[in-house]
Design a protein around this nucleic acid. Sequence first.
DNA 1: TTTTTGTTGATAATGAAATATCAATACCCA
DNA 2: TGGGTATTGATATTTCATTATCAACAAAAA
Lengths: 131, 131
Amino acid sequence: MRARTTRQLEVIRTVIQAADRPLTVAELHAEAARELPGLGIATVYRAVRDMARDRMIVAVNYPGQPTRYEAALARHHAHFICHHCKRVFDVEGPEEVPLPRRRPKGFKFTGNEVVYYGSCADCARMGRGKR
Amino acid sequence: MRARTTRQLEVIRTVIQAADRPLTVAELHAEAARELPGLGIATVYRAVRDMARDRMIVAVNYPGQPTRYEAALARHHAHFICHHCKRVFDVEGPEEVPLPRRRPKGFKFTGNEVVYYGSCADCARMGRGKR
DNA sequence: TTTTTGTTGATAATGAAATATCAATACCCA
DNA sequence: TGGGTATTGATATTTCATTATCAACAAAAA
């Protein structure tokens, strides 16, 4: 049972590779469906499951919302969550995040992640600047 | 319909105020039930909903797991997620998190949050040090 | 082409968190 | 202390994300 190269997989992969931010399955489906009307949501779920298994994409989770996925790029980056539209954007990562001065003993710190909050350009423009 | 001071609310509030890490409703229920056997999970959900509404506690979300809640303390702190047991711990926040050098134009950065990853003392001790 | 069989799309099913329902209970004020 | 009524506990229901099912379809090989 060798894998087949289908039009839907091609489109789904292209969309997620081209995206500049992590997408939910729904967002990915909506975008891919523009190129391929009739695309089933189940197909997107299957594609995402497989790509995640193969490490082509990585899962990203944030408050209340469904899991998002983005291409597994090597470059380090952080996320920016818009308080208003709740979309998640990729932004350049911070220079460096220092470890806490005091660390609970016995704990091993192996990595960190930074999330910035604020208003995205669209929302800020609409006067929803604060919070 | 004035609010009443019930034993269950007292216990639930005490537990979450005393906790040194964000708790899921299940964790909170388990802990409170030790003091008050028979405590219903629905009561915990109701208490949490109300406390969150009144800003006594804040919601904290992380990958795959249900929403966690913790006392809304003023002091700034970060979270530490153990790769193994998945528990979330409070740790002292980093000195300072610099903004990305390049920021998408129009975006307003209003805050940030840091999450550290690694092994908690318990898991590290059990030889599950790496990852 | 024809055949084989992996893949798709529609949808039912599942799983889990959170909310709604309601009779029984227990606060708390008169 | 008695009773009106907010709250509780058990559980049904809802809500959604995700997975399973399966007939129809379409890659890829012959």
